[in-house]
Design a protein around this nucleic acid. Structure first.
Lengths: 144, 144
DNA sequence: ACAATATTTCAAATATATTTGAAATACTTA
DNA sequence: TAAGTATTTCAAATATATTTGAAATATTGT
């Protein structure tokens, strides 16, 4: 299956910028004909490229911050008001507000007002995401 | 267990900036005494705050990019040379190089030279991380 | 050796994310 | 009603990440 059809469709020498049927693009194909790849694989990969990953990326982005990750972990222990984070993270309200907003917009936490306090809690999604993250076994090779 | 000891340690009125034993910080505690939280919960949360999450964050950061995610997905189908990405993602070499470098530094991919081609492959870690990401069920509430 | 090619590297330009501090909001207590 | 408090919001400052294009590198075929 490693042998492909790409060579077959090569245009006669001297025709620069030829179309490549295997790429299926209008523009000149940038994959050199000497690179062997099955058209099956190429098609599969091409399919992937149009897949929408924006939701995935959006949530991963929100998760990839130390402060936000700690907030989520803390909320798994107990619903907490902002003031607790302000104290324990040594952090201004405005900074926390910013991070809490991102978590909330991503649907990972929500909050209710109790008197002057705003109590944040983990949503179901938030809990699941945190679990997933912790199930990943992270071992970065060197220091990156 | 919701009743806490925080009230007990309140200093006499008029003493501003008192230490709060429940916070255990040297500085004045920012958690208002009217906010009720068990000292057990507070201790647990405080413990979390010192936990190191940098490896987790480092890998999540690398994963949270559409291009890098697509590269990983593609490499699960087959080892691929850079030229394939250049073609299918409509992207300059230098840009791809940048993203591939991040993936490599994170240990998610590696590569070997074959002639003039650089063939990238998913590492074991890369495969696991991709699996984990895909097992998360992402549903961002609104558009974030 | 030479020219062509596939790729990386680097620095500058751009874009995005985060922090900061001041002002606004909304609730509570006096 | 006024004053205090917990929190958010906003805009400016800063920091970080990404893109871009030109030049460097390494390999190949001639």
């Amino acid at each position: 299956m490693r042998m492909d059809e790409r060579e077959k469709v090569r245009k006669p020498a001297g025709v620069k910028n030829r179309l490549s049927a295997s790429c299926g693009q209008e523009n000149p194909c940038k994959i050199p004909p000497s690179y062997r790849i099955s058209s099956e694989a190429l098609e599969k990969v091409k399919g992937l490229m149009h897949e929408d990953v924006s939701d995935t990326v959006a949530i991963l982005k929100v998760l990839s911050d130390p402060m936000r990750l700690r907030i989520l972990k803390a909320l798994r222990i107990e619903d907490l008001c902002v003031c607790v984070f302000v104290e324990l993270m040594n952090c201004e309200y405005s900074k926390l507000s910013y991070h809490l907003k991102l978590l909330k917009e991503a649907g990972l936490v929500d909050c209710t007002k109790e008197g002057n306090f705003l109590i944040y809690r983990l949503t179901e999604l938030g809990g699941k995401m945190l679990d997933s993250v912790e199930k990943m076994h992270f071992s970065v090779p060197s220091s990156i």
